[in-house]
Simulated assay, not measured.
Amino acid sequence: MRAALLALGLLAVSTAVQAEPVEVLSFGSFTPQDYAGIINGTYRQSPVELQGHLSLPPSSGRRIPAVVIVPGSGGYAQWMQDTVAAPLNRIGIATLIVDSFSGRGVKETARDQGRVPMAASVLDGFQALAMLARHPGIDGQRIGITGFSRGGVAALFTAERRLADALAAGNPGQPRFAAHLPFYPGCSTQWDNPRPAAAPLLLLLGARDDYTPAAICLAYAVRLRLAGADVNTRLYDTAGHAWMADYPARRSNVQTFGECDLRIEDDGQIRDAKSGASSREGWKEFAAKVMTSCGGTGATIGADAEARIAATADMVAFFRRTLRP
């Protein structure tokens, strides 16, 4: 009976009707090789045009809050609209799902993370924030961010004050995110000396995740809290990786970095503690060396009905509290 109820709940979530049609918008971003490129401003040397899928619920003429949604290594998929955007739309929150890959000529990075720098996905989140803040129907002071796996890293690292401060210095009026909610982010890369923003942060993690292990994120959350972050975590006992997706759990030949210890220095360069490799030599070369040093292949990914229902409720409650729709 419990399984049947969960299946019915999952069906209700996944088949939800949108409040408004989805509009595809174009916006500019860049492709920094690492976080140093964002901090020192050299990211502007690599412009790219991306797309975002915007869904606006009825607003009664008032500016409404919004959430930026950043996909994982598999790229944009319809389930993100059905299971993540739709519940937020129903409580009066607009959503923008970022497509980080199509504009860069890439379909996915799951089997080769060297194709697109991780810092590029983080910057895409900031660029989407700036675009939404200019939208006449959006309240620029009430914009949150979420994302899955790689996109979870974007939701996590947009809460790093160094990056937000650097972008604000070069763009007067640059808004700040009001809330951050990463789904199963990869935490094997961490800031050596994190400087978290004041906005609330909630990490949603899977206890059975063998792709981006929860234990590493739980430890990082402690470090963030000691640095002054308003951070909380949720751990779902039955969940592996990608439990929000719409495909059955399966074994996949993805690159994994759960055994790595990658540290971001104060200037934004990334170093591999095991091999000594540095991102200053370029992302593609760095990613290849890290893969040789501490990477692996193979993880279980896919939907978990129980975790998906619980996480959707936690997501809605978090953004209802922090963005006040």
Rank of each mutant, 00 (worst) to 15 (best):
S293I: 06
S293M: 08
H241F: 08
R162N: 13
V106Y: 00
R162Q: 11
A168H: 13
W191N: 14
A288R: 15
M118F: 08
N232L: 09
S14A: 09
G114S: 05
T158V: 15
I69E: 01
R63K: 15
G173L: 06
M1K: 10
S59V: 05
A198V: 01
I38F: 04
G282K: 07
P175G: 01
D99T: 02
V68P: 12
G74K: 06
T31R: 12
A242C: 07
G206A: 10
A179V: 10
L25W: 10
V13I: 15
D304I: 02
N40Y: 05
S252L: 12
L50K: 02
A229C: 08
V24W: 00
P196K: 11
R223P: 09
P57R: 06
F286P: 13
K284W: 00
V22M: 14
A85G: 05
R2Y: 06
F319C: 09
P71N: 00
A36V: 01
L224T: 07
Q255K: 04
A273W: 01
T233N: 14
L181D: 09
A169T: 09
L201H: 09
Y220A: 12
A307T: 03
Q127V: 02
H53A: 02
T158C: 15
W191G: 10
A166M: 09
V67K: 08
A3Q: 11
I143H: 09
G41I: 02
R234Q: 14
A239S: 12
L181N: 11
S59Q: 12
F101H: 07
R134E: 15
A214C: 03
D139E: 12
D261F: 02
R62V: 11
V122S: 13
F183A: 09
E160R: 07
L11Q: 12
F27E: 05
A85W: 00
R104Y: 03
P182I: 03
N89H: 12
A77L: 03
R134V: 04
A303L: 07
R44K: 14
E259W: 01
D192Y: 01
R134Q: 15
S26A: 14
G298C: 06
V254L: 06
V24H: 00
P172E: 05
P185E: 13
A166R: 09
I69F: 00
I270D: 14
A303H: 05
A36S: 14
D272H: 10
V84E: 03
T292D: 15
G240H: 08
E23S: 11
V254Y: 11
A207L: 03
I91S: 13
D209R: 04
I91H: 09
W191P: 13
S26V: 00
A168V: 03
H241D: 12
L88S: 10
R250C: 07
G137C: 04
A287I: 00
F148A: 09
R251F: 11
P194S: 03
L8G: 11
Q33W: 02
G170Q: 13
M244G: 10
R150H: 04
Y35D: 14
